[in-house]
Amino acid sequence: MAAIEIRNAVKIYQDQQRKRDLLALDTVNLTVEKNDFLCLLGPSGCGKSTLLNMIAGFESVSSGEILVDGKPVTGPGADRGMVFQQPTLMPWLTVWENIAFHLKLRGVHKAARREEAQLYIDMVGLTGFENHYPNELSGGMASRVGIARALLLNPAVILMDEPFAALDAQTRMDMQEELVAIWQKHQGTVVFVTHSVEEALVLGTKIAVMSCRPGRLGELIPLDLPYPRDITEAAFNDRKRHILARFKAEADKARKSAAA
């Protein structure tokens, strides 16, 4: 059984202020297999977040259906871990309490929560910052907390919405490397949204390029390059040229339709 199965999903936003409907996603079909690392690549405004939010259950589908692990999505739940673009940590909880928040909701005792949180704190390299509050963390550290929090759910799929977009280049590269290492070690299905061709190429086992206005999904492009990927390698640049060409065409189309 596929990890995620999207069948003819359409999303129409009702724009209350302008009394106009917006077709954000048009008949999206997608199958994500178990242990895929799928990168959804597209220019901004083409419906990447919308698609991810529908898988997460934050937005409903206007028609069509989305199945996760064979079951239709009806709302948010801990079987799908989400890493948001902004870290969205509870500012009143410390790092470890943020990471273990799910366990608190389930009524797990403090000692057990603390112990389990430590596993994930060590995994994302935050050892020593357990008792810091979010406002005392750098952007990269806050992202790590967001990732650890999603990992602790031990979800069937992890959904990531441009989690590294706000980081500086060096931190972003480190985070990408660590994410791949964690994913290789623990396996699991990842859907990773990005508007950066390079990021998609560094991370994914498959890439889907989205087209704009309305958002549509192109076919899946498999990437069989070994990890960690060398961005200077000839094979890497081959793929990059190929995907960049498609991406450019979509981005141009998006710009034109926005101007029209």
Partner: peptide, 17 residues
């Protein structure tokens, strides 16, 4: 923050929680 509510819903919070 609406996103905090989303994050909590993602972690399985009931309305009372």
């Amino acid at each position: 923050d609406r996103n905090l509510i989303r994050a909590a819903a993602m972690m399985g919070a009931t309305e009372q929680q």
